[in-house]
Design a binder for these strands. Structure first.
Lengths: 234, 234
DNA sequence: GCAATAGTGTCTTTGAGACAGTATTGA
DNA sequence: TCAATACTGTCTCAAAGACACTATTGC
């Protein structure tokens, strides 16, 4: 029985390696619109164009891919606890003119109250752009952004992902409005509330209400033990 | 306005790069069981242990990540047109004792009739193992396999993924049986057939029936223009 | 005819949406 | 009292499951 030379065991040192990056699609809700965080590139290639925030994976510094994503998120925004998940990998010989690159794209949602961008030398090059009126993006970042949008819209139907676009405490009418913005259609109030109640992923904050010049509304928060899934997957 | 030194533009050449691999979780259905393709490692680390098929991404040879996955799939099996999709990335400093590695895991389904493994010097080191009785795996491959299983089970409910575990032509009772094996529960025949009919992703093969010592059953195939999704996502 | 499996029809249950109703606040 | 918004109850409709029924073959 010959066990020699499985192809995965060519000596790694001989093998040219692709560049490995992490890119982030960070969504928020501002001014009633879904917006995405973009950076203006300072150097070639694509100098002056807008791109998703990202950076090289640094083996000497990053403990894991998730760690690299958290480092990059923290360097652009001052957000402590966003919702973040891996989106998809993109890698080929053409996406970066400097050579073969592979990127792990991540998908993050942050609340508009947490919007403070990281102060620093380059803060002015970081900006929120409405998704609908976004500029042309560098590299294949428009593809990555569209993939993130699909993930967001696809998951809205059966998760409470949109709750992460709101402050920690929010009302059900707030939340319904977020769903309506992302799905771009009106939802029935009664059905929406029944669905949320059945899912059991939210809990009322005892005694806390939001007051306006009308009937006050109950504040809710995401249950700490909640998985983000609705419906039969519970 | 200072646009210098965006962190993603540290000169790539200065940056140590992780190893980049592609690993495959390849499922099939044999002997009424869900099975996964494994290879026995010929060299350290984890010499002699079983692992998922995989290999380094080769910038000089692979056009893209998908291309690398297809190359590796083709080198282990003689399968022409499997179902394959990207599963998830895994990367950290600890998963391979040789250093920081990142892998793009892929998920493939092939029909048992296409099972011919690639003949070659190492063919005897490639083998199908029932998922339930699999050996302990090298690296973090058990985590990757479990992630693949979750993807399979999670997608069964609303896709025709299981059809890719069958030959090109199959009967509805065949297909229902696959669903039942993966979900590990009985399904109602009437409801199952209605759901498949409504989805419109299958088409009968005109005039072709499977004969046995009972009423013959209609053969179906996946519609060539079909996306694999059922239900409201259509 | 009989066993065996393919395929269909019908009833019931469940959940979502439509929509109208009631409740509670500030002004 | 009124405007405004929060919240609830009820009706309808459609999809899904339970289950019994019919259909077609080999023997």
């Amino acid at each position: 029985m010959t066990k020699a030379s499985a192809s995965q065991d060519i000596s790694p040192a001989q093998c040219p390696r692709p560049f490995v990056t992490v890119d982030l699609v960070i969504f928020t809700l501002r001014e009633g619109q879904l917006q995405v965080l973009l950076m203006q590139r300072a150097v070639p290639p694509f100098e002056g164009m807008w791109a998703l925030p990202g950076g090289y994976v640094r083996p000497d510094e990053d403990e894991s891919l998730d760690g690299a994503a958290a480092r990059i998120l923290g360097s652009k925004t001052a957000v402590a606890t966003p919702y973040i998940e891996q989106l998809q990998g993109f890698g080929n010989a053409r996406r970066d003119p400097r050579g073969w690159t592979a990127t792990f794209a991540y998908f993050a949602l942050i609340a508009s109250e947490q919007l403070a961008l990281q102060s620093g030398a380059n803060a002015e090059d970081v900006a929120w752009h409405p998704v609908e009126t976004r500029p042309v993006l560098a590299f294949d970042h428009d593809l990555i952004l569209r993939t993130g949008l699909e993930r967001l819209r696809g998951k809205v139907e059966y998760t409470i992902l949109p709750a992460h676009l709101l402050p920690a405490k929010f009302t059900l009418p707030d939340l319904q409005s977020v769903y309506e913005q992302i799905l771009d259609r009106r939802l029935d109030k009664s059905a929406f509330r029944k669905k949320m109640a059945d899912a059991g992923l939210l809990e009322p904050v005892p005694g806390e209400m939001r007051h306006a010049s009308n009937r006050p509304s109950q504040l809710y928060r995401i249950r700490s033990d909640a998985t983000p899934f609705l419906g039969r997957t519970i």
